[in-house]
Computed example of a mutant assay.
Amino acid sequence: MKKLLLVPVLTLASSLCAMAADDVAKSPPAAPYQQVSKLVKLPDFLPGMGQLFVDPTTLPAGPFLAYDHDGKLVSTIYMLPTKDLNPDKSFDNLAAPGGNVDHVDVYYNAGHPGVEEPHVHVVLWHVAAAGEESVAK
């Protein structure tokens, strides 16, 4: 009997994840996300990243939702301060609001408006590598 209950629970959990991904699939995402360029002095579209939205209460780490020129979600980005990458700090249960992740990029950034201190970008791509071109320019 317990095994029979597990199937509907897993199906419901999968459906909820899919619904959550659908909620952010197109720009603009619903509150509490806000357009980053309206919060700090940055262009509306950042080549290589796209149009960014974030829940300001999650700064500086994010997640930032990145959209292409057509308003399609292409990645979820975390900006983790390098000073916090040490044995005394951890970043647990980071969400991927956009759903499935195709691949991940990690790179250093010396700082920019909104996240001024040096940090690492952890980019969860929801599109194949070829799809990254949609935010290249």
Rank of each mutant, 00 (worst) to 15 (best):
K2V: 13
L4W: 12
L5I: 03
V9A: 15
V9N: 07
T11A: 15
S15T: 09
S15N: 10
L16Q: 08
A18E: 02
M19L: 14
A20L: 12
D22R: 14
V24F: 05
P28V: 07
A30K: 14
P32E: 07
Y33C: 07
Y33F: 15
Q34E: 13
Q35W: 03
K38L: 11
P43N: 07
L46G: 02
Q51P: 00
L52W: 11
L52C: 00
F53D: 02
F53N: 03
D55K: 08
D55L: 07
P56R: 01
T58M: 15
G62C: 02
P63K: 11
P63C: 07
L65K: 06
D68H: 11
L73G: 04
V74A: 01
S75R: 10
S75K: 10
I77L: 06
L80S: 00
T82L: 14
T82R: 15
K83G: 01
K83W: 13
L85P: 02
L85R: 07
L85M: 15
N86D: 08
D88T: 14
F91C: 05
D92T: 13
N93K: 06
A96R: 11
P97W: 08
N100I: 00
N100C: 00
V101H: 08
H103R: 07
N109M: 04
H112L: 14
P113G: 03
G114L: 11
E116R: 15
E116F: 13
H121W: 14
V123S: 09
W125A: 02
H126R: 07
A128F: 04
A130Q: 14
E132P: 01
V135E: 05
A136H: 10
